[in-house]
């Protein structure tokens, strides 16, 4: 928590309205993925990187483009291919001749020097190339030839990957995977949305945005995010959730011990806290609640739990395990007497 004073309703109202407008516009531009849009906006507000996973043609690239337009941020796209080199992303120094005849090395920034970098099909690039983005994603800077260059603020990496074309691809290393705030699954749209797409959009082209954020509005959103209050009880809940995901931990569930090889890192707890603030802001509350943590937990944790072969054998996914954690870990940390713990339906 960065501030001990809560945001007043007067302070919160305009930023919430602003966020709601962005969300509404996003939902208008792209149909059928309201929850993904909400989580993506939360990710942006949390200043985190998001990995979008989905079949080809579900609108991953269109989503990122629309978001960039809405937020009026500089947007660049890199199509990751197997022959892509780190320098193609980060940039490099080239020898340039001056008008007076002298020659010097001039740094040419790569496409990573932008606000929003769309790394399309990131799993097609080699691990060497993928690793080149580690420092940029974590440090918001690039070091080349011993010189560190800051990336523009804000800086987001919105990567996409195809879950079915595995031939010729390289799975993202866990170290890089851990740096993505969310991993969102973009699924296909339902028939109603598809009907609207067909009838209202020629060639499926989304309409231009009617509203976009000014830089000051975006800064206000980031500033409000910093003032969203995270109480110790909620922080303790986040910590217990992450700790319970580690096999062998005292609070680990039996299923975690059975199916998980490695649990989430402390970075996951930080990611949970930050994204929960974004969820609270979108809900119009000055404080982070337990339900905010629960609403983003799946997106934060599902790609950080490393499952073992037993899980693959029994077809247990990380989403299943996260759901179990949310159901069995009591938010308040109360050790209920056996047989007396209320089920969710009782708390109405």
């Amino acid at each position: 928590m960065t501030s001990s004073e809560l945001l007043t309703p007067e302070e919160l109202r305009p930023v919430r309205q602003c966020a709601d407008e962005v969300l509404a516009e996003l939902n208008r531009i792209l149909l059928g993925h309201e929850e993904a849009h909400r989580l993506l906006l939360i990710g942006i507000l949390s200043r985190g990187h998001v990995l979008l996973e989905g079949l080809p043609g579900v609108g991953k690239t269109a989503l990122v483009k629309a978001l960039g337009a809405l937020l009026r941020l500089e947007f660049k796209r890199v199509q990751f291919t197997p022959d892509l080199l780190p320098g193609d992303i980060l940039g490099g120094s080239i020898l340039q001749q001056e008008p007076d005849g002298s020659r010097r090395m001039v740094f040419q920034p790569g496409p990573i020097f932008t606000n929003i970098l769309l790394a399309d099909e990131i799993n097609r690039a080699s691990p060497k190339t993928q690793s080149a983005m580690l420092e940029a994603m974590q440090e918001q800077a690039v070091t080349l030839l011993g010189e560190t260059r800051r990336l523009p603020a804000p800086f987001f990496v919105l990567a996409s990957q195809n879950p079915i074309e595995l031939e010729g691809t390289y799975p993202i290393p866990e170290a890089q995977l851990d740096r993505f705030l969310f991993k969102l699954e973009i699924s296909g749209v339902d028939a109603d949305a598809l009907t609207r797409i067909i009838t209202e959009r020629r060639r499926g082209e989304p309409p231009p945005p009617r509203r976009s954020l000014e830089r000051a509005e975006l800064d206000a959103l980031f500033h409000a995010m910093d003032r969203i209050y995270l109480s110790e009880a909620v922080a303790r809940y986040i910590a217990r959730l992450v700790a319970a995901g580690h096999p062998g931990a005292p609070e680990a569930l039996p299923e975690i011990n059975r199916f998980v090889a490695f649990g989430a890192s402390p970075r996951a707890a930080i990611a949970l806290a930050e994204s929960a603030r974004g969820a609270a802001l979108l809900a119009g509350r000055p404080t982070v609640g337990f339900e905010d943590v629960q609403s983003v937990a799946a997106a934060v944790l599902n790609h950080r739990l490393i499952l073992n072969y037993q899980a693959k054998l029994e077809k247990v996914t990380s989403f299943d395990l996260v759901r179990m954690l949310l159901e069995r870990i009591d938010p308040a940390g109360i050790d209920w007497p056996e047989g007396t713990k209320p089920i969710r339906g009782d708390q109405s």
């Binding site: 995270l230 009880a233 909620v234 609270a280 000055p286 982070v288 609640g289 337990f290 938010p331």
Partner: peptide, 12 residues
Amino acid sequence: AGLDAASRAGGL
């Protein structure tokens, strides 16, 4: 905290 969760008070 239990009351907060049961009342869905959002951490307030």
